[in-house]
Design a protein around this nucleic acid. Sequence first.
RNA 1: GGAGCCGUAGUGUAGUGGUCUAACAUGUCGGCCUGUCACGCCGAAGAUCGCGGGUUCAACUCCCGUCGGCUCCGCCA
Length: 603
Amino acid sequence: MERVIETIAGLHRSHGCGELTAGDTGREVTLMGWVHRRRDHGGLIFIDLRDRSGLVQVVCDPEAGPAFKKAEGVRNEYVIAVAGRVRQRPEGTINPKLATGAIEVAARELRVLNGAKTPPFYIEDGIDVDEVLRLRYRYLDLRRPEMQRIMRLRYQTTRAMRSFLDKRGFWEIETPMLTRSTPEGARDFLVPSRLRPGEFFALPQSPQLFKQILMVAGIERYFQIVRCFRDEDLRADRQPEFTQLDIEMSFIQREDILKMVEELMASVFRETLGVDIDLPIPRLTYREAMARFGSDKPDLRFDLEIVDVSDVVKGSGFKVFSSAVAGGGVVRGLCAPGCANFSRRELDELTQAAAVFGAKGLAWMALTGEGARSPIAKFFTDEELQALVARMGGKEGDLLLFVADKETVAAAALGSLRLELGRRLGLYDEEQLAFTWVTEFPLLEYSPEEKRYVAVHHPFTMPMEEDWPLLASEPLKVRALAYDLVLNGVELGGGSIRIHRRDIQEKMFGLLGFSPEEAREKFGFLLEAFEYGTPPHGGIAFGLDRMVMLMARRDTIRDCIAFPKTQSGTCLMTAAPSTVAPEQLLELHLKSTARTAGSGGKE
RNA sequence: GGAGCCGUAGUGUAGUGGUCUAACAUGUCGGCCUGUCACGCCGAAGAUCGCGGGUUCAACUCCCGUCGGCUCCGCCA
């Protein structure tokens, strides 16, 4: 059908559709938006008009003449302007499901500002459609109210952060997007330099080194809401480009930062969600978190703690347990309340969940009225069984689950099992916000691939002063002045007090296996800067996408990013990445070794 | 790099070796309709079942491969 596109000339939008109330009755208004739905009754046409403020019903009467004629040709998602008068709806036609349901706009004039193809999915909340389609037509997906709410929440969150930090004397400073590839850490995205053949910039994994140099530069209090890039595999909560709130402060100690961040979080959650966070935020040491919850980002919305039974079972006749302990491992368990009646199938599923993290098996013991029902009960004496049940705090009707393994495997497997049980048993309230600090992370861990120690946080993290003596003797036992903020089992952010003393930094490099020459080569500019009067300093960085995901109660950060990538790192809307013209490569002095025959990209 | 799940009209699903000439809902298009709001009623169009190969008399269905998507492990200082 031939559609006539009209101009907007002479019309001035007076209201948002969703803003109109009974108080506007009698008022002459001009609305502009998208046709959400049209109901054509032959002699009377209703149009639900939508803009980002909401919906309102527009009524077109044949008496309106040309407006009625045009309304007949209008289709979903057409962009129209309507001028008319707000009126009360007739008796009995009020729609309580609609915010503007008590009124309607009687169209006097209607202009079709643009037509639209029929969208491939409904422009409304709660749609059940393949995410591929949503990402391909992201502009339509973002038209949906729930997505608009998330985008607004994200904006409100960064606004609240800026406002808080501004009041505390922080300056927002931009750092380069084209920078130096840094060793250590994630894989870099590289950008070839045209002017320097054979050389490359890297996109920043974080502004870490720049923000520390800003402390040397005397900025004292810095922040930045900044895009960061990591060329690693994706997850529901990991994208190759993401946004972080990056903060650094001088002349402070760990407590100063933690306190400031707690106040920041309280302020942001109050301003965006109207929620009050209980302060101070509770703290766990890394050691405690791993032992009790099997994770360095424990979900504290529910208890269900892991219990160590190594000492109880070390002398038992059950070889799997006793030999695990004898071999330096541990036996730990969980008491699943009221799960004694779990089926074979449910137990298999739990075993699978534990196996993902490397547990070789999952021992179970159902506490029934007739005693312990379990394939392993026969290996224990009555006394051992009693001691075991007592240690686990097991009651009749409970199911005890055990993993015997290296400490790291047992912790990880039971930690994941704990989350699985928490979900299955509905042990927590979805609305709850359980913040926690995790502190005293280890400074170093051993990398078998590289056959050396690597920094758990980064090479500039200050060791805890009481552990300084261990640096030489037992480096793996040294704890760092590093901290993570965790919310509902998700790592929101992390930071540390940095090393500002040359002697300690040299020790650290020594432990990481860098010769002075190597250190200079990798971080020379930073070390040089550090020689010109570096204040004690420290900071933290938060994943904005994850924070918004939790605030909006979504399961993936893709829903909180306007234009996210798929799991294979592509953009379904733009079809990026793509091949480029050979001349472009030539200019950059590059030659692709890829074997795919992409001859210049898709048309 | 590895494991698992998914792929059928525009969309969401059904169909598990033979009336499948692929069904249902919704959407779309046309007609009717002056108080609907997931409007209603009547009618129509719309799918080489992701792609390629194999098994079979016969494949949407079984097998292999491949592509795409999702979840997870590794990886992510």
